[in-house]
Design a protein around this nucleic acid. Structure first.
Lengths: 351, 351
DNA sequence: GACAGCCATGTTTGCGTTCACATTCTGGCC
DNA sequence: GGCCAGAATGTGAACGCAAACATGGCTGTC
């Protein structure tokens, strides 16, 4: 049970305003909702009464009466990560333009499934007009089933088989771009340190990586896996640094790349002379890593706008769609990718 | 105006459940609210009916009827920054334990004041039981005035003069710790690159820095200012790198430190041999910078818990308090602080 | 000058829940 | 066996708002 809450606070209500302005409560409502057929004098009188009383209308009552609300819910988790938090921010900015309010339910704590369930439950109960699921992992999706039919859904980084409107960054292409870029620099093959298995993006990037290797007939080296953190990148990097063949690495994201770079440096392998590396995300500080990190940028702003568009479409037409949008990533070349030096020359230079 | 929304969606209501279970709607309510004096058989019958119908209770109606809600609002901005986003996360986790739901209003877009006003407005209208303002800048606070008297408030990183319950990281002490640490390593004085002027934390850290210098009678060098980004740190760093006297730098935060480090490196100044530097925040990847960054960690988890405690206290007692809590930062020594090499020795080594 | 038609406003009802009170039923005790 | 406490349930109203419908007054037109 919840901690017993104290007696409620109730402010002035519509009829108080009405009394003060000498009109009926309905007229107040009309003024508030911008209905036509209210005389200018009445309107100003009502507005004045509202101001004097400090009246604010009760959203709950409004939602109860109309059955609609103009708030859309966002279900998000891992919001301390750069990707998800940027996404939320972007959706928020897009919503601002559509006169929609955003309620963000942050999935916190250990049990993601239970937590997201609770959040969806609450969002629905609050009468959210639509829901955006930031669902880069399956756990988030499970809660989608709790959403009643009438409420439109858009997922971000969801899976096509969910049959729900979705917008994703084209991680597959991103993976290809990264790999091709490394290949184009002259590397025989590219090693990949993937992100957590459960993340859809990880899988798509891996697929892109494999596809790009296959294009040129390169053999895929064994794939390593990291979390999204620098720490996990460092762990993997310590192994990679001891593999002489490993001259080109495509990292799960920028922070993982950072960890790997550190491990490489500790092992005395120079970047990009000995090893080239490319990240993913383009976090704001990536350009200031040492050396500046070449990476694949995700345009989260676009993602947010598209997600909102998809949601508004459904809201307007009233039918659930399964339309999906892809946002293309872009390569940001910086200083961590170089042409591999043939071993012979390297040897010659050494002494 | 909002885009015209389609007809509402209405699910089964309490009386539907009641009819199905063969009881009155009030009994259903009792079951839902865990009231005593409901027989076991009735309870199971009601529960069954609820499950069969897929009934979910309408939060708006509930809030309307009771005048209270168990959701607390969080007003946040700059949520892509590490600090604020960690804060939100921490509060969310703390709320989970108190059976409270969180609604986060993300202040997005250019006009922070207008945006936060809208958010507060909505949160209040939704009947939030209490509000947490993440208010590291004054803009956020301005909207606090819109909150009606009955609704308790807690600020995070707010100012004492606001007369509101507040929890902050002790930035002043943090600034002192950083400066002392550098001083203890043997530096004559410490340069400071401060964060944006409007942020309260920036000012407190600056004060701490000055105080620590004063303690040992060191002269305060001119203070530089950066944003919170690596890019801005880099800009400032390019100047600092050309100042031979500058051997110890206390940076606004870790990302600024990163930017400075890069500028230093480009200028050929070695860290920590030539210049020592210390950051603030301890972002997860700070230990993987090159070299690993010595920094001051802020315990955001503690902040979140304290904020919630303060809020719950007010909720329970029903009186607004102005109690405030301070969370102590902790020094995380790593590899960017060293003992300055006397110029003579330096010269001797050079050739 | 009568009537249509529109404008400005008021009245009533219902949204789904909880609360306060009323009612019925059960069992125990003298 | 009568009575009473209290458990189990029901009834009606209220929460604050918006929608639907109702009303009265004004303009304009033939």
């Amino acid at each position: 049970m919840s901690t017993a809450l104290p007696p409620p606070h109730r402010g002035p209500v519509m009829s108080d305003v009405a009394a003060r302005a000498g009109v009926s409560h309905q007229t107040v409502s009309r003024v508030l909702n911008g209905h036509p057929h209210v005389s200018a004098t009445t309107r100003t009188r009502v507005l004045a009464a509202i101001a004097e009383l400090g009246y604010r209308r009760n959203l709950s009552a409004r939602v109860l009466a109309t059955g609609r609300s103009n708030v859309i819910g966002v279900v998000a988790q891992n919001t301390t990560l750069y990707g998800p938090s940027s996404m939320v921010q972007a959706i928020g900015e897009a919503a601002l333009g559509a006169d929609l309010s955003l309620t963000v339910g942050h999935v916190a704590g250990y049990d993601a499934t239970a937590a997201s369930r609770r959040i969806v439950e609450r969002l629905v109960q609050q009468g959210a007009a639509g829901l955006v699921f930031i669902a880069p992992v399956d756990a988030a999706a499970e809660a989608m089933r709790l959403v009643p039919d009438g409420v439109p859904i858009v997922t971000v980084d969801g899976l096509p088989e969910w049959q729900v409107a979705n917008v994703s960054v084209d991680q597959y292409t991103g993976g290809m771009m990264a790999t091709r870029h490394l290949l184009a620099a002259g590397h025989r093959t590219v090693w990949h340190v993937a992100g957590p298995e459960q993340w859809h993006g990880s899988r798509a990037r891996e697929d892109g990586w494999r596809a790009a290797l296959a294009e040129v007939g390169a053999m895929a080296p064994p794939m390593a896996r990291a979390g999204w953190s620098a720490a996990s990148g460092y762990q993997v990097g310590r192994m990679l640094a001891r593999i002489p063949d490993c001259t080109a690495i495509f990292a799960a994201n920028d922070h993982v790349a950072l960890g790997i770079m550190r491990a490489l440096a500790e092992q005395g392998r120079r970047i990009p002379d000995d090893v080239s590396i490319i990240g993913f995300d383009d976090v704001p500080e990536a350009g200031y890593f040492h050396p500046a990190l070449t990476t694949i940028r995700q345009e989260f702003g676009d993602v947010g706008r598209q997600a909102l568009r998809l949601l508004l479409d459904q809201l307007a037409t009233g039918v659930k769609s399964a339309e999906s949008a892809l946002v293309e990533p872009v390569l940001v070349p910086r200083d961590t990718v170089g042409t591999p030096v043939p071993v012979a020359i390297l040897e010659g230079n050494k002494t």
